[in-house]
Simulated scan of single mutants.
Amino acid sequence: MTQSVPLLVVEDEALLLLDVQDGLEGAGYAVLGAASGREALALMDIHLDSIRALVTDIDIGSDSITGWDLAQRAREAKPHLPVIYMTGASADQWTSRGVPHSVLLHKPFASAQLITAVSQLLNSSTDIAAGPGTE
């Protein structure tokens, strides 16, 4: 159904990272997984040109890099990159700290919700990148 589109998934809870990776890979996506903000930045430095979307937890460990920070950095380099935030506690900050044209999923969520969000953002980012008067 879906071609092997590379996604960067960032989640500091190992079991949740594995669950998210499995769900996305089962839907045909290729996944680069990171368990911390620093690890995600390193992967972005190497793979940003090929990454088609960022799926990130907001509170990702103790290295002081948040999902908000990762999305900002990614969008500076790749303005139309789809971003999906995952959170159990920081949803109230999305309107002030989230990047435009992003989606926020409240934990816990079903794999189908994540797959739908990724698919919709990938489709709309193609339209945004091709459309006139964009960002």
Rank of each mutant, 00 (worst) to 15 (best):
A91D: 07
R52I: 05
I46S: 13
D63V: 13
H47C: 10
A77R: 14
S111R: 11
A42S: 10
A42D: 05
G98S: 04
V83N: 07
S96M: 12
G26A: 07
L105R: 00
Y85T: 02
S90I: 02
V55W: 01
L104T: 02
A30S: 15
L105F: 03
L41W: 11
L104V: 11
S36R: 04
G28T: 05
R97I: 05
L105H: 02
I84E: 00
K107P: 03
I51G: 04
R52A: 08
A112T: 11
A77Q: 10
A53L: 08
L41G: 12
Q93L: 15
V83G: 05
A91E: 06
H101Q: 14
Q72P: 02
S50R: 15
Y85I: 00
S36T: 11
S62E: 14
V31A: 09
P82M: 07
A74C: 08
V99F: 08
I84K: 00
G98D: 03
L54V: 02
A74F: 01
D69V: 09
P108R: 02
S102M: 03
W94V: 09
I65C: 02
R97P: 02
I46Q: 15
G61L: 10
S64E: 13
H80A: 11
S62F: 11
D92Q: 11
G33Q: 06
Y29Q: 06
I51K: 02
Y85N: 09
I58C: 00
G26W: 07
A91C: 06
S62Y: 09
V99G: 08
S62N: 14
K78N: 11
S64Q: 14
L41D: 08
G37P: 00
E39N: 05
